[in-house]
Structures are given as structure tokens and as C-alpha cells.
Lab assay of single mutants.
Amino acid sequence: MATGGRRGAAAAPLLVAVAALLLGAAGHLYPGEVCPGMDIRNNLTRLHELENCSVIEGHLQILLMFKTRPEDFRDLSFPKLIMITDYLLLFRVYGLESLKDLFPNLTVIRGSRLFFNYALVIFEMVHLKELGLYNLMNITRGSVRIEKNNELCYLATIDWSRILDSVEDNYIVLNKDDNEECGDICPGTAKGKTNCPATVINGQFVERCWTHSHCQKVCPTICKSHGCTAEGLCCHSECLGNCSQPDDPTKCVACRNFYLDGRCVETCPPPYYHFQDWRCVNFSFCQDLHHKCKNSRRQGCHQYVIHNNKCIPECPSGYTMNSSNLLCTPCLGPCPKVCHLLEGEKTIDSVTSAQELRGCTVINGSLIINIRGGNNLAAELEANLGLIEEISGYLKIRRSYALVSLSFFRKLRLIRGETLEIGNYSFYALDNQNLRQLWDWSKHNLTITQGKLFFHYNPKLCLSEIHKMEEVSGTKGRQERNDIALKTNGDQASCENELLKFSYIRTSFDKI
């Protein structure tokens, strides 16, 4: 039985969820670079991206490699990797027998973001014989899940209580170790020597080791999670996991709180800001991140802002960003909400898709409305799209047979046209069989910064309504002859009103 693990408890099935942008060198404390989270699957090609990484700022997932063999891993080693800020997950990587050479110096898994409450997941690794993470000293947050690894031993010899604050939620089941077939031998045991430290858990006094050649490092209890030197002297209180010299914040392997210019500090002093819960960055760093993602459509890219001495992905609820200094300031009234469309555009074809934009005031991208039916549609669209004030790209209304009016965009005031449909149009209306009105132009103002209007096959939309939009939106004169079809717009509506004058002759039985 794995020490510190839980057996036999019912657990939810383990679901495996399925960018080499360097964020800056980590400095003297770390020998390499800070790398983003990685999802490495199918083959070993991307694994080489770990070569210079000291910190993975995010998670590391290595999974679904069915053609790899043990010899493929023999020359692979990433000794610079010290810390993973989120979680480490391995799933069905064939041929991998140990992690001792792959990650010989991995010391800390912070667990800032977890995989279903777990910071370390080893699942269905069919050839893994031992973990071998002999320098792993601290899992700051989260638990361990090690399950269905039929060859995995050296679990009962690990004292997880020396690595985690609590072992109650560890789930370590259905491994070879369960069948008591392992016969784990710690260093020196074969020669009758006791080389590794022994600890007591559940009444068992057991030597602690990761492999037959690597003991588990056990520091004096007084050192807590700070770690200790090879001689057993406690590291500085700002260290986490390990250090090369005692009581020196510049000799830590990793930091308990924050890293700044080669030393570990309790908090980031001005003019620095907390970033990702582990390091200090200056304003320029946060500003660069903001600008890199301002026009990016890459998933996970955030326009970072500053709030409460932190550089964070977005302002919290009730705050909006001051564009001059990136500071989050309290909103006066309802907060603006910028919604970034991942692929640059979004099609609204149902109430469900409209709900995804609920509360958005600025759309960074283009909207395509293609709704053919739905219950209580006008009210639903207004509830979900009615706060949109600005669209950076274009607005396209296409084959939306259920629409009679666009009044559900009740606050839309600006279409920038930074991206144009077919390279020309910022407003595009095609084949809307029941569209009769755009907006009530006596109450609604709309500016279209650039781009043209396109109207074709809107049989109940009168040309007068379209011409009014040209005047109000500032697009009059931009359109070419064929942009607004004269014969297919309003051709099934009563669009022309003329005053009919009647004269009559009164007659009676005795007068003409």
C-alpha cells in the first residue's frame, strides 16, 4: 500500500482533458527560462521544448504516446526543470519506465491550478516501474492521483506527508504495488545497510526511497516546507523545498512566496507586481503582455491589467481597466465587458449561442446573426445582446428569417469595421425574408467608422429604411451602385405612401 494514499474509496472516473512563447529569463536562482504550460502528445517531438525550461508557468501534460519505446527515452533528460506552477499529468506514455532521468531536479509542483483537485496525476502508464522524482520536495496545493499503472512499484516507500501538507485526498490505487509483488529495495538494503531515512506512518517504520538508488530526502521537522541542505541544516524561511546553503534567500532552489532578481522575498516591493503567484514583474512586463494579447485571437491570451499590486489576466467583477495605466478602477454604474472572439468572429444561430455573449459591452471581433427560429426570440436576444455598444469588426445579418427588427441591439452605437466582410463591408444584410426595420432612427444613433453597407434580398425592408441608415451611420456616399439592390429590397412591402385627393359631386333626387 502506498504510504499516505487512500484505498478502496469510491472515486469519480478520471477524465483526461485534452506555445513556446518565453516569458522571460528567471535569473540567477533558476538555471534556465520560464516556459508556458505545455500539452505534449502523440510523439516526442515537442518534448524537446523543455530543454531550457527551469519553470513551467502553467501545467505540463505528457500523454497518448503509443509508439514510443524505452530506448526512445534513454537520452532524454531535462535537468534544468525545477518547478511547475500548476500540475504534472502523465497518461498512456508507452515505453517510459521512470522519471528519474527525465526530470531529475523537479523540486516543486505548486498546484496553482489543479487537474480535478490533483497536482500530480500518473494514470495508465503501462510501462512505468517507478516514479523516480527523487528531488520532489513540495506539492504546495492539491493532491496526488496514481492509478492503474500495472508495473509501478516504489510507492509504499514514499512518505507523501513530507511532500504535501495533507495526504487525506491522495488516491493511489490499482498499481502493481497493490499486489505486494514489488519487493522494493532501498539503497544499501541488499548489503544489509540502512542508507535512507525511515519514518513512521500508520504504525509502520519504513525506509523512504524513490528507487533502488535514490533515497527520499527527509528534512528535520523544524525546517517545515522550506527544505534543508545535504547536511540537514534548514533553508531560509522564504525558500521552498530545498537550498544549497542554509538561511540564505539567494540560495533557495525555489521560493515559498515570490522570486525577485535572484532572491526569494515575502512580497513584491514597489515598483514590482505579483505575477502568477510566484514571481515579481515590473510595469513594462505587464504592459507588454497586455499589448501582445490586445489584437491576438490565441486562446488563453489575456490583456493583463494591474489590481491590488498584482498583474492579473482581467479586472475583477465591479472594476474596469483604465487604459492609460492598466489599473483596475471601480465602475460607475454597470461595468464594461470586452469579449474577445477566439477566431475573430462568432455566429449567433440560437439563443444558446447568444447567451455566451451575455453582459458583453464591447465585441472584439465580428458578429454573424443567422437565426431561423426560436421561442420568445426578441426578448431572449435583447437579454443577451442588448448591452453590446461596440463591435470592432463587422455585423452580418444573414438568412435570419425569424427577425423582424434589429432593435434587440438596443445599445449598439459603434461598428468600427477594423475587419470587413469580403474585404469591403462593415454591415452586411443578406436574404432576411421578414426583416422590416433596422432601428427606430428617431431614437437610435449608430456610427460606422469604416467599410460599406450591403443589402440584398431583404424583400420587406424598404429602401427608405436603408437610406436612413446611410445618413445616420455616416456611410452615405461610400456605397457603390450594386451594394444596395434596388429590386430585391422592399419588393414585397408597401414602401411608397402617396396622399390621394378626392373630389365629389353631391346629387339628390331633384338636383344634379
Rank of each mutant, 00 (worst) to 15 (best):
D184Q: 03
P330M: 05
G192I: 01
H290L: 07
Q61R: 05
P220M: 03
K217C: 04
G318L: 05
P31N: 15
V173L: 15
V200Q: 11
C280H: 00
F115H: 02
L128R: 01
R110K: 09
P36N: 04
K191D: 02
W210T: 05
S237G: 08
D277G: 09
H307I: 07
A190Y: 10
Q299C: 07
Y259V: 06
D101L: 11
C268I: 01
R297Q: 11
A119W: 01
C182M: 15
N43F: 04
E130V: 05
F116S: 12
C255D: 00
K193T: 11
T85M: 05
H59R: 08
K191A: 06
P246R: 06
R69P: 07
K148M: 07
N309M: 09
C280T: 00
C234T: 02
V34F: 15
P187F: 11
N242A: 10
S143Q: 13
P36I: 06
G333T: 03
A254D: 14
P197I: 13
T45L: 13
G333V: 03
P269W: 11
H59D: 02
M65S: 12
C252K: 01
V305G: 07
L81Y: 00
L76K: 15
L133K: 01
R298E: 06
V121E: 00
T85I: 05
V108Y: 03
G318T: 07
I158A: 10
P187G: 14
L88R: 01
L326W: 04
N309E: 09
V173W: 01
D184P: 04
T194W: 12
V121G: 02
A198N: 12
V93R: 00
C228T: 02
L63S: 13
C252L: 00
L155Y: 12
C223L: 02
K129Y: 08
Y134D: 13
D86K: 02
S166F: 06
L136Y: 01
C235Q: 00
P269H: 14
V200K: 03
P269L: 08
G318P: 03
N175R: 09
V253Y: 13
H48C: 03
R256C: 02
P79V: 03
E151A: 13
N170M: 08
G227N: 04
T250W: 05
K129P: 01
N202I: 03
G232I: 04
C235N: 01
C239K: 00
W160C: 02
V167R: 06
C264I: 00
S143F: 07
L174P: 13
L327G: 02
E71N: 11
G232M: 04
I146M: 08
P197K: 10
L47M: 07
N295R: 14
T140E: 06
Q276A: 09
L47E: 00
N175A: 12
N179Y: 03
L164M: 14
E314V: 04
H236F: 02
D247S: 02
N325R: 10
Q61T: 13
L174S: 13
M137H: 13
V93S: 01
C255Q: 01
Y30T: 06
E57Y: 08
S324D: 15
L289I: 15
W210V: 05
R279P: 00
H214P: 06
F123L: 13
D184V: 14
L128W: 01
C153L: 02
L136N: 00
K310N: 10
T320I: 05
K224A: 09
V265R: 07
C153W: 01
C301I: 00
E97F: 15
C234M: 04
K129T: 14
C209Q: 02
L99H: 01
P220R: 04
M125P: 01
V218A: 10
C35R: 00
D72A: 09
T229L: 12
K217Y: 05
L131T: 11
S237W: 09
I62Q: 00
C315R: 00
K217A: 15
K224M: 04
P70R: 11
L128I: 08
F116Q: 04
I222V: 10
C153I: 01
P220A: 02
C182T: 10
R297N: 08
N52T: 13
N257W: 03
F258E: 01
A190S: 09
S284W: 11
L63M: 08
P187T: 11
G37K: 03
C268Q: 01
L327I: 10
C280Y: 00
Q303S: 11
D165N: 05
S225Y: 11
P271A: 12
C186S: 07
P336M: 06
E57V: 09
H226Q: 06
S323E: 14
L152S: 03
L155R: 04
L120F: 00
I201G: 14
R162M: 08
I40K: 00
T199Q: 11
F283R: 12
N175F: 13
L89A: 02
A198W: 10
S77W: 08
I172S: 13
P249L: 07
I109F: 01
N105G: 09
E207W: 14
F285M: 08
E147I: 15
P269T: 14
P197M: 10
P220H: 04
P270M: 04
L240F: 04
D159T: 12
N308W: 12
D165G: 12
P336G: 04
C335A: 06
I62R: 00
